[in-house]
Amino acid sequence: MSDPTRYAPRPAPYEAVGKRAPLAPDRPGFLVDLRRCIGCHACSVACKTVHEVELGSFPLRVRWLPDPGGDTYSFVPVFSESLCTDDAESLAVGMEPACARACPTDALVFGDFAAAGSLLGLAELESDIRRLAGPDATDLKQEVVYRALPEWVGAKLNQGAALDPKDEDPIYEQR
């Protein structure tokens, strides 16, 4: 069953500023719902634009990974453990980080795992949730959990080095 909070209207950003309490989740985190990701790069480009990240560095990168033995692709947004900051400016004015706000399909959602009834809290109860890295394991301030992550993608993500873009991404050109 779908989460009713998904359909709650998002406030216009200009209404949010100065009127909403800062977001200060007890357990901040991202839910990456791979059932919804369309590989569009909106999150990555929004992040790089607002943070004026120079070319060559990706705090968040969208990967197109060829399905093994298949004819199509799986899309996976991957956070850089080092370069992703917490986008405190957005949280301070009560908004999700810019990457999550840019996601057109709600594949990338920021929230509080600890909040009762929240999208993240509910998602955590689902059987197809995988946590790849927690606050203890990386420098990321947030937890990142993936929903509907194929086994083979999870294996790659956990290997870290296997995500070196040089040989993994057959469509998008890499250095």
Binding site: V17, S57, L83, E89, V93, R175
Partner: peptide
Amino acid sequence: AATEPSSPAARDQLLEQVRSTRLNY
């Protein structure tokens, strides 16, 4: 490029640059 910064110094430098140019909503 396109991967992780290779050293803590580089990373700090980059983070500093990222923070200094942020948008103040």
